[in-house]
C-alpha cells in the first residue's frame, strides 16, 4: 500500500484530519531540515515545491520563494536530492512534489519519474498540466508507480470532475474559494459540497487548500474534508528568517499551532 494511503487510513482510524505543509525546495536550505521541522510540528504529508521561473498559479509570497530557491541554484536535480535526504531520515511521511511542467519535461519525464521514485517521492502535482493535456508526464509517473495529485477548482463542472478523477490518485486537491467571494463561511460550505461530490465519484481522500491562512480557518475547513494544505503562511515564515535554523524553529511552531487547532476541532 502506498505511503499516502497508509497515512490517510491511519488518520481515518483515529478520526483525525490530514495536515499538509508546503515549502519550496532549496528555499533557505538544500538539506532536509525544514521538512523535518514540518513533521516535528505535526505535518502528516509534505508538499515540496519545485522552483520555476514563471510560477503562474502562485501568489507573491510563494513566487518570491521560487525566486530565492532559483538564485540559490535549485532546480529539479536539487529538489530530488532534498527529497532523498529527507527520505533517509523519515521512511513514513509521504512526500508530494508540486511544480510546473517545463522543468520536468526538460529533465525528461521518464528520467524524472524514475529518479523521483528512487528518491522516495510518493506523488507529483503538476500545476499546469491539467487532466487530458498532451504530455508524456502522466504515463511516466504511472510507469514508476508514482501517484498523480490533481487539482479541482471551485469552478470545475461536475462532468469535468469525473474526467479529472480518472487521472487522479493519492488524494484529490480541492482549491478553496477565495478572492472576491472568499468569505470564510462560504468556503466551508463550498468545500463541504465539493467533498461530498468527489466522494460519490471516487474513494480517494479529498483535501482543501490554496489561501488557508489562520489555524482557525484550517480547523473549520478540515471538519468538512479529509485534510488541509498550508502553504503561503509557512513559506512566508521561511522568507522572514535569516537562516535555516531560525526558519526550522518557526516552521515547527507554526505547524504545531495548525495541528492543535485541527485536532481540537476534530477530537480523536
Amino acid at each position: 500500500m502506498s505511503r499516502i494511503r497508509t497515512r490517510f487510513d491511519s488518520l481515518a482510524a483515529r478520526r483525525a484530519r490530514a495536515l499538509i505543509g508546503y515549502i519550496v525546495a532549496g528555499d533557505a536550505t538544500s538539506g532536509p531540515g525544514l521538512m523535518r521541522a514540518l513533521t516535528a510540528g505535526g505535518a502528516d504529508v509534505i508538499e515540496l515545491g519545485m522552483p520555476f521561473s514563471d510560477p503562474m498559479a502562485e501568489g507573491p509570497i510563494i513566487q518570491r520563494a521560487h525566486e530565492r530557491a532559483l538564485s540559490a541554484g535549485t532546480s529539479v536535480p536539487g529538489v530530488l536530492e532534498q527529497a532523498a535526504a529527507f527520505r533517509r531520515v523519515d521512511e513514513d511521511t509521504p512526500v508530494v512534489l508540486m511544480g510546473y511542467l517545463n522543468p520536468l519535461e526538460r529533465y525528461g519525464c521518464t528520467a524524472f519519474a524514475a529518479d523521483a521514485r528512487t528518491a522516495g517521492v510518493d506523488a507529483v502535482l503538476c500545476v499546469d498540466c491539467p487532466a487530458g493535456e498532451r504530455s508524456p508526464l502522466e504515463r511516466a509517473l504511472e510507469a514508476e508507480g508514482l501517484e498523480k495529485i490533481q487539482l479541482i477548482a471551485p469552478t470545475t463542472a461536475p462532468g469535468r470532475c469525473r474526467e479529472i478523477l480518472t487521472h487522479a490518485s493519492g488524494f484529490a486537491y480541492a482549491i478553496t474559494l477565495r478572492g472576491v467571494t472568499g468569505a470564510a463561511d462560504l468556503e466551508v460550505e463550498a468545500v463541504r459540497a465539493r467533498t461530498a461530490e468527489l466522494k460519490a465519484l471516487s474513494d480517494i481522500p479529498v483535501v482543501a487548500g490554496f489561501g488557508i491562512k489562520s489555524p482557525g480557518d484550517a480547523a473549520r475547513l478540515s471538519e468538512v474534508c479529509d485534510g488541509v494544505v498550508i502553504g503561503s503562511a509557512l513559506v512566508g515564515a521561511v522568507g522572514g528568517c535569516d537562516n535555516a535554523e531560525a526558519a526550522a524553529v518557526q516552521l515547527e511552531m507554526l505547524m504545531h499551532s495548525y495541528r492543535t487547532a485541527i485536532d481540537s476541532g476534530n477530537p480523536a
Binding site: A57, R134, A153, R160
Partner: peptide
C-alpha cells in the same frame, strides 16, 4: 478540437482554476 496545431503545439497548459473560464 482540443486546441492543438498538429500533434503537439498549443493546448491548455494552465492550472485547473482557468479551465472553466477558457471553456
Amino acid at each position: 478540437s482540443e486546441g492543438y496545431f498538429g500533434e503537439q503545439f498549443g493546448g491548455r497548459f494552465v492550472a485547473e482554476t482557468l479551465i472553466a473560464a477558457l471553456d
